[in-house]
Nucleic acid binder design. Structure first.
Length: 921
RNA sequence: GCCCAGGUGGUGGAAUCGGUAGACACGCAGGACUUAAAAUCCUGUGGCCGCAAGGCUGUGCGGGUUCAAGUCCCGCCCUGGGUACCA
């Protein structure tokens, strides 16, 4: 048996691993734990493409490496199984989304098994399984039954709050909540049950409220902010509108500060942390009240630049601001109401597209400047957002570019209060310069002016220092079928949670997966959708509910009493390494952190950050193939000829292309429109153009890993994906180069089969110094590289090693056995097979990682490059322990030195031990 | 606009602390073995000049620091990703 039969070997070992449960992790162990997690996939109908395994291969290498280092490794996989595509498919075909999802999962599993991952499949979870979502519903009920106490800075039971209300009203309560009036204990006791329920909803962490939401008519549902990109839905790209609706939401804003601070304690990339910081959007400033002229009351604004208060030349209110109606004078009433109507009817996308067009309307009313007493005109403008701060701004056109544009457009005064800019050209927004035209602030720099202004504002009772966050509460209800039912029923209109022992609330059967005639969500179609005789909630949870806590469930997936047992949670704790894409930066990764902190608050888990280290793998892009159709004809021309015509590029399936030549016969069979078309070729070939982009069905550029496994083997696929480049970088898929990796594995195989008849043979001879050096420098490099996630360079280190051993004709056990161990995390199948051939009965999986010994790398000589003014001219051997002064002497007396000195006298000689010699002349 | 990455041969990419730029691999060219193919092996391969020895040049562009710069500093340009009237 000579050749490297990867198909046989890989199938055989995949079967053995499954049979022997090689990768099963125990919840009790004397070994230290290591938890390696992949972002679990949504099993889509398209199956895995070669981009998906990239992160899984990296996490698998780490898992296997840690097992070699005697860690008890938890490396699970599961399915984010609720989601829109399966439901859209159900709407079209009537097939239950559970069936579609099941089929897709089976396909994904098969594809993953082909690659030889070391997942512990006994811990598989599926978010759409009632035994799983029972606990998602359980967490929702805990959120409903909790409020956020700012005094203790954590979530607490709502019962405690009710007790406080009964005892002393809400005067002493500091909570993350909606605006509430002050009420006494007597007031509280006098409220009806409905009134009490409404007030408590303002405090609960899962709450029902009427709010502006992102409504997507095409999907028939609301969306969270992170599910809307550029004014259209992230899934499907459908337009999104603003709409006032009663909705379930989660009070993530209560955790803004902790979510922000937690970032400093975790090992994530700067770009993801930065994205989360921006999304949370903390800004510190002050509130300031402007009294109204000829009116009672005042307008409160929020500003981060109280130093510029003397530069205020008008106020701007959001069109939705509550005072807009009252303020408009008779003269302006009509114009104001027309403007407000116009602003409200604009969709999110129109508004964004229209960003450069400045619009606004004067109300006719004036406020009074709190320091100068001057009248300040009050305007409405849609550049002011109702949802942020107070929905009103003090406009300082001199030092805020948006106010500047608005002032320019409506010809309002622009005052300079910070020197340093040229206000005839642009506003001067920088926070440096000296205050001018500003009464008691004159002469101060911006920083001191800010503190002076705040203390003055507070002293005069005009406002207080204040912190705002951009982070909005997360809309939690979806008007869709394929999601977790929200375990809430309505007793006489009052929302109540189901009893915990009655969970799970299982998704009911419906006749169609569409809204009802009256516009109710699909669940309203279910028969007897009631609890204790009362109607149940009709919306379901969003896609991110199940994924916000799945890492906990893996620790103890079968538990029926709890989200996971305390023993399991205390042993496994947080995730040591989390690998996944950057697309979840402000969605999943923020929600999971939020739920983690909440579970921590209620004492369910002993850590408050879920993912200690996060590594983002780059996207593997697809290479699309384009052919060119001459406009208004059925004629296609080869890429090189396309400039002679007006053409339109058409995407064709990458399977029809080899190199850059399109297989015409296959093309004609692929789609009927190509069969009877005319072709103009180059040298008898139809050459296609290429384009790099996302791998997707739509562009016909999807490459299935199954084909690669079949043609080259799983080990080759694994090594090749790692060899492509740094894990974090985006890179287009191309099979150019995959041959080199297969060649490398064959060479490795041949080292063990070096008998004349090419059978297995290893020698027990003592290795030479050179062989030991080769081995140990590879151990060193491979270990350092794995620790740095530099997988591409360790693959090349293996190649160098095998090349050197081949040149040395090395077939010694003492060298080759440790080599197999360090290669095994990357290419586990061939490693297991060689290990077995070496005479071992146990899987290589638990074999200790070889220990690097520096003594084998010690050299006593170094072949120094000798440079003159930085240019290397020749090399010369010197002992490493030779004194620099002696090296200098020998270099200067070398005959070649005279040649390169070109008659100049050397000024000095720099000798860097073991590196370089530089002669300065 | 703002924030974050990044820019190195024909291609993917290497290069600890500033110390021989281009490791490893692909591709290409030439050769060996073979009836042939596959497989395998050997040699060469940044550019320019040269038969060669050798020389010059070279890490997006322009400056600077240094004995020495892909690496550090200043100013630009370009590409990818995120985000956007957040006061």
């Amino acid at each position: 048996m000579a050749s490297y039969e990867f198909r046989r070997i890989e199938k055989e070992w995949q079967r053995r691993w499954a049979e022997e449960g090689t990768f099963r992790a125990l919840n009790k162990s004397e070994q230290p734990k290591y938890y390696v997690l992949d972002m679990f996939p949504y099993p889509s109908g398209a199956g895995l493409h070669v981009g998906h395994p990239l992160g899984y291969i990296a996490s698998d290498i780490i898992s296997r490496y840690k097992r070699h280092q005697d860690f008890n490794v938890l490396h699970p996989m599961g399915w984010d199984a609720f989601g829109l595509p399966a439901e859209q498919y159900a709407i079209q075909t009537g097939q239950h989304p559970a069936i579609t999802t099941e089929e897709n999962i089976r396909r994904y599993r098969e594809q993953m098994d082909n690659i030889g991952f070391s997942f512990d499949w006994s811990r598989e979870v599926k978010t759409s399984d009632p035994s799983y979502y029972r606990w998602t519903q359980w967490i929702f009920i805990q959120l409903f039954n909790s409020w956020y106490n700012i005094n203790t800075n954590k979530a607490e039971p709502i019962d405690k709050l009710v007790a406080e209300f009964e005892h002393a009203g809400n005067a002493n309560v500091r909570a993350a909540c909606e605006e509430n009036g002050i009420f006494s204990a007597e007031d509280w006791k006098g409220y009806t049950e409905k009134q009490q329920s409404d007030i408590l909803l303002n405090y609960r962490l899962a709450f029902l409220s009427e709010a502006m939401v992102n409504w997507c008519p095409a999907l028939g549902t609301v969306l969270a902010n992170d599910e809307v990109k550029d004014g259209v839905s992230e899934r499907g790209g459908y337009p999104v509108e603003r709409k006032l609706m009663t909705q379930w939401s989660l009070r993530i804003s209560a955790y803004s500060e902790r979510l922000l601070h937690g970032l400093d304690t975790i090992d994530w990339s700067d770009s993801i942390k930065e994205a989360q910081r921006n999304w949370i959007g903390k800004s510190e400033g002050t509130s300031l009240h402007f009294k109204l002229k000829d009116h009672k009351g005042s307008i409160e604004v929020f500003t981060t630049r109280p130093d510029t208060v003397f530069g205020v030349s008008f106020l701007t209110l959001a069109p939705e601001h509550e005072l807009v109606d009252q303020l408009a004078t008779d003269e302006y009433k009509e114009a104001v109401s027309a403007y407000v109507t116009m602003a409200k009817n604009r969709s999110e996308r129109d508004r964004m597209a229209d960003i450069k067009n400045i619009s606004g309307q004067f109300t006719g009313a004036y406020a009074i400047h709190p320091f100068t007493g001057n009248p300040i005109p009050i305007w409405i403008g849609d550049y002011v957002l109702a949802g942020y701060g107070t929905g009103a701004v003090m406009a300082v056109p001199g030092h805020d570019s948006r106010d500047y544009d608005f002032a320019r457009h409506f010809n309002l005064p622009i005052l300079e209060v910070v020197s340093g800019g040229d206000l005839s050209v642009a506003s001067y927004d920088a926070k440096e310069g000296e205050l001018v035209n500003s009464d008691f602030l004159n002469g101060l720099d911006v920083k001191s002016a800010i503190s002076k202004a705040i203390s003055e504002i507070e002293k005069r009772g005009l406002g207080t220092g204040k912190t705002n966050y951009r982070l909005r509460n997360a809309v939690f209800g979806r008007q869709r079928y394929w999601g977790e039912p929200i375990p809430v029923y309505y007793e006489n209109g009052i929302p109540k949670c189901m009893e915990l022992q009655d969970l799970p609330l299982v998704l009911p059967e419906v006749d169609k997966y569409l809204p009802t005639e009256t516009g109710e969500p699909p669940l309203a179609r279910a028969k007897n959708w009631t609890y204790k005789g009362f109607p149940l909630e009709n919306t379901t949870m969003p896609g991110w509910a199940g994924s916000s806590w799945y890492y906990v469930r893996y620790m103890d997936p079968g538990n029926e009493e709890n989200i996971a047992s305390q023993e399991a949670i205390r042993y496994w704790r947080d995730v040591d390494l989390y690998i996944g894409g950057t697309e979840h930066a402000t969605g999943h990764l923020l929600y999971a952190r939020f739920w983690c902190k909440f579970l921590y608050d209620i004492g369910k888990i002993p850590f408050d950050e879920p993912f200690r280290k996060l590594v983002n793998q780059g996207m593997i892009q697809g290479q699309s193939c384009l052919i060119y159709r001459v406009n208004n004809t059925n004629k296609f021309v080869s890429s090189g000829l396309r400039n002679q015509y007006e053409t339109t590029p058409i995407h064709v399936d990458v399977k029809l292309v080899s190199g850059n030549e399109v297989n015409l016969e296959q093309l004609k069979q692929w789609r009927p429109e190509f069969d009877d078309a005319e072709y103009e070729l180059e040298n008898g070939k139809l050459i296609c153009g290429t384009e790099i982009g996302k791998m997707s069905k739509r562009w016909h550029n999807v490459v299935n890993p199954d084909n690669i496994c079949n043609d080259y083997g799983a080990d080759t696929l694994r090594l090749y994906e790692m060899f492509l480049g740094p894990l974090q970088d985006a890179k287009p898929w191309s099979t150019q180069g995959i041959e080199g990796v297969l060649r490398f594995l064959r060479k490795l195989w041949r080292l063990f089969h070096n008998n004349p008849d090419e059978t297995f043979y290893l020698s027990d001879e003592e290795p030479t110094k050179a062989e030991l050096k080769t081995l140990h420098k590879t151990i060193k490099k491979a270990t350092e590289d794995i620790d740095n996630f530099s997988f591409n360079t360790s693959v090349s280190a293996f190649m160098v090693c095998v090349n050197e051993l081949q040149d040395a004709r090395c077939n010694k056990r003492a060298i080759l056995e440790p080599l197999v161990v360090i290669i095994s995390p990357y290419a586990p199948h061939i490693a297991e097979e060689l290990w077995k051939l070496c005479g071992h009965n146990q899987s290589i999986e638990r074999e200790p990682w070889p220990v690097f010994k520096a003594e084998y790398l010690v050299e006593n000589e170094f072949f120094y490059p000798v440079s003159f003014n930085g240019k290397v001219r020749f090399n010369k051997n010197f002992a490493l322990d030779m004194e620099p002064i002696e090296i200098e002497k020998q270099v200067l007396s070398d005959e070649q030195t005279q040649k390169y000195l070109e008659g100049k006298t050397p000024k000095k000689v720099i000798v860097v031990k073991g590196r370089i010699i530089n002669v300065v002349a």
